[in-house]
Design a protein around this nucleic acid. Structure first.
Lengths: 337, 337
DNA sequence: CCGGGGGATTTAGACGATTCAATCAGGGCT
DNA sequence: AGCCCTGATTGAATCGTCTAAATCCCCCGG
């Protein structure tokens, strides 16, 4: 009835449990005839290894945790894809957890993962300086920050967000915009504030640019739409003529709101998003966006983790940084005279 | 160095391991003073429960596997969201696995989940009659089919796909279309063929409708674009005037191809998708789509599973079926004379 | 014929948490 | 003083797998 254990397999094959274990782990040291008998027994009983027992014995599991801010965001699914591809090569399983930009959920997932004694954790944290992260590391779970730069003793994989902000800002300013909105949030999140710093820098260099900041709690389509309505309702005189949004979901929502409000994109409102998700190109007005190498990020993060797990001791933490690209499409392809 | 075990905690608190375990599991039977001492010890040592050991002892894990066809598809992330919400209430963890419509990957994930002795598996299988599924059940892992109807002894949660197909078909036919394309795939997948059956039925009833079928391997944006190009290249005389696509990703890709080819939607080509994902409404031309209650599906599936796990014995397998709705938007809002 | 060598197999002890039967310490009652 | 009861705590066995050390067996060489 219950799943058979190695013991039943051994009994049926007329050998000891040790031999069965050897067949499973070092088949070459077992005599061919015996090996065959054991394998037959395994098949006949439908034996399936118990990962919990292996894990307990080995002291380490074969799972890696990946905690992301929003699984529904294609950027993160791409990232997960990359991580999973590499994990597969290392005979490792990825457990994807969705924190939904909520520190409480994030904490809950971290607890679960630690209890499961995962090999390590890849995380896009709500707050990169969260003491829980370092505590985790101190207690022995390797952590790699994803899409965030680690300052202290951690590995991290990130994209130069300030550069991303500068790219978007420069593009909009050169297109003649003087009132620009930056929309993202929460500002406490490193990536959001870095992108802001980027665009702020170039705005200040240009001198005459009026940069308005709008904060949201969560970066989803719904929130983008809401901010869009709010901005569309401003008097045309003071209303920004361009918006840079900290991710594409926000941008898509924002774009919808423009359509509803009857504002033309890019004529009345230029839009630049971030991440360059697949849907950006398929939007009502194809969306300009700052592209990040999502899959590469995931792959790279997993690489660092595996390195740390295997080298254990003599491992130096590294910070890998990628460069973003600006992809200009119709939503910002209009030069103001 | 290594994570401390219950033994170190006990030693430091000057009690036996049994008492520590009691503090963790039935604190009320432990004398307050002792309890306090143990809790202090736990905190001081940074003790974290070892889930593998608990699991091994308990004989059952606290994880549920969810295997979906495509995590990048918002339909499935919504579904996962629903499942996770209920899991949380049952103090259970969901492990999301992405089969990418690939039976091999699917099999790999099933193996992993079984080795982990998960509580149960929720799956949108590539092939509902896959013998591996029933084998899994026979060996003791409860399985609930999601977005598929189970015939045999399994629980399932699904949406009436034939009805969905009929809704889309009727709508297009009543709008005056006589040449209609149905695009989806692989046709061997139950939901794809059910939707086809639905539209075929109403097309036959109408009598004069020419229904053309196009098969794809995977239902993603890229494939939709490819089929779109192919159809746009047909001579206008024989080219369908409407397309019903088996999911919204396909439809979005298809829509892009129309734009590129210079065909106007809905005038030259009406489009109806399936799933009504968030992006459908945000598309270049807002997409008509057959809506499925994704989150509800996930929740419901998890409900059935928990029921089966708890009732163990006297549990009757059930097939829950939801009704889809047709959401008409601009992409099909044009009546041919 | 005996000892030794080497390959094949077995044995036994972890790994960490849980649980239940057994023990223990006190207090109250006769 | 002796006894019992109760509530608190302990001890030991258990879950399934792995591995290092021990044992077994057979054959070969001296």
């Amino acid at each position: 009835m219950a799943t058979p254990s190695i013991k039943e397999v051994a009994h049926r094959a007329g050998v000891s449990v040790g031999t069965v274990s050897n067949v499973l782990n070092r088949p070459w040291i077992v005599a061919p005839a015996t090996r065959q008998r054991v394998q037959d027994s395994i098949r006949a009983l439908g034996f399936v290894r118990n990962e919990a027992a292996r894990h307990l014995r080995a002291g380490r599991s074969r799972t890696v945790g990946l905690v992301v801010l929003d699984v529904a965001n294609p950027f993160f699914t791409d990232l997960a894809e990359g991580a999973e591809a590499l994990a597969y090569e290392h005979d490792t399983v990825v457990m994807v957890c969705n924190s939904k930009t909520d520190p409480v959920r994030e904490g809950h997932h971290l607890d679960q993962l630690e209890q499961q004694r995962v090999l390590g954790i890849l995380i896009t944290p709500f707050d990169s300086n969260d003491p829980r992260l370092t505590a985790l590391v101190d207690r022995g779970t390797p952590v790699v920050l994803v899409d965030r730069t680690a300052d202290r003793g951690l590995c991290s994989v990130s994209v130069d967000d300030q550069l991303g902000g500068r790219l978007a800002g420069t593009h909009l300013i050169e297109s003649g915009h003087r009132r620009i909105a930056y929309i993202g949030g929460p500002f406490s999140m490193q990536q959001v504030s870095d992108r802001m710093t980027g665009i702020t820098t170039v705005a200040e260099q240009a001198g005459t640019v009026d940069l308005q900041l709008f904060e949201v709690d969560v970066m989803g389509v719904v929130e983008g739409r809401a901010i869009g309505e709010q901005i569309a309702a401003l008097p045309p005189r003071s209303r920004p003529t361009a918006a840079f949004l900290a991710n594409d979901l926000l941008a898509l929502g924002f774009l919808q709101a423009m359509a509803v409000a009857g504002l033309r994109v890019p004529r009345d409102m230029a839009i630049v998003g971030y991440d360059d998700i697949d849907f950006a190109r398929a939007a009502a007005v194809p969306l300009s966006s700052v592209r990040q190498p999502a899959e590469m990020l995931g792959r790279s993060a997993m690489e660092l983790l595996q390195e740390e797990v295997e080298a254990a001791d003599r491992h130096r933490h590294r910070q890998v940084i990628f460069q973003p690209d600006l992809i200009v499409r119709e939503s910002s392809a209009y030069k103001r005279s």
